[in-house]
Amino acid sequence: MNTILDVKDLVIHYETDDGCVYAVNGLDLDLQEGETLGLVGETGAGKTTLARGIMGLVPDPPGRIRGGEIIYRGTDLLQCSNAEMRKVRGRKIAMIFQDPMTSLNPVTNVGLQIAEAIQSHEKLSRKAAMQKACQMLEQVGIPAERAGEYPHQFSGGMKQRVVIAIALACNPDILIADEPTTALDVTIQAQVLDMLRELRETYHMSMLLITHDLGVVAQTCDRVAVIYGGEIVESADVYTLFDQHLHPYTQGLLDSIPKLNEDVERLKPIEGMMPDPTQLPEGCRFCSRCAYADERCRTEHPNMLDLGNGHKVRCFRYETQEVEPHE
């Protein structure tokens, strides 16, 4: 498999009046061709900032990309001009935003919102673009007759389908889905996820699925990266991660899910809060909430350890401890 997107040591900060928010700190991530990579983390971990960083849509001010590389098929997107980036957005890398209720323009009909994406990348007449937009709508399960309608005439799930149709309109290589199902109810979530999976296969896309729902990850992804405090703390293929989660944070995440086969009276949350992103701890970002933390964790920042087989973890515990390779 080829690496289609390689994020190296990406640093994104928000400089506000109340101090600098360290949203993404030296983040490394790679996406292989044709795979679905799940990016899991809690609110404020830097997931959306990373996604916007890849799209070149970090709001500036206050957002600043302080360093790193985002390499898409050999070109560093951070070095691209605005005009070059515009050709990448939508055509090569497309994005689905979190809340379908607010991510469609309320005063433009949905057909045109899809068609304008097509027209900006392909030399098509307005009518041809509109026809293609109608095909896209059909593909996401919305009758083409509704292309002339406005977002307020659609339900939440339908709006998210429209958003997906916009993202896929130009047949992108990479789809970044930023919590595409968070704002939807559970039955609609399942429909939307199934549809995304099917469309990903039809269009041979790679997908970066951002979520905080491990169930969604298990169902949809090939590989998982866990993000905490703006950096990846553990990454592995999906089976390894669910069987052999090594980082204390990943363990905490998985333990907090109630098991169906056990009688649970109280949920087991991870104790404590996310560190304040304006004052990240000096050592391991997770040390204040970690049961295993010692003096070294508080002062020294751990590096990513490669355990082989694509399993990486950012924790001192596995420097000495031998880990059985996962079968």
Binding site: R86, R89, E116, S120, C170
Partner: peptide
């Protein structure tokens, strides 16, 4: 600051169009 402006930009349309139409 609305989300649909991000959506519009993520389509790769020209900034002038984002400004006027959206």
């Amino acid at each position: 600051r609305q989300d649909y402006i991000s959506t519009a930009r993520s389509k790769g349309i020209a900034e002038s169009r984002v400004t006027v139409r959206h």
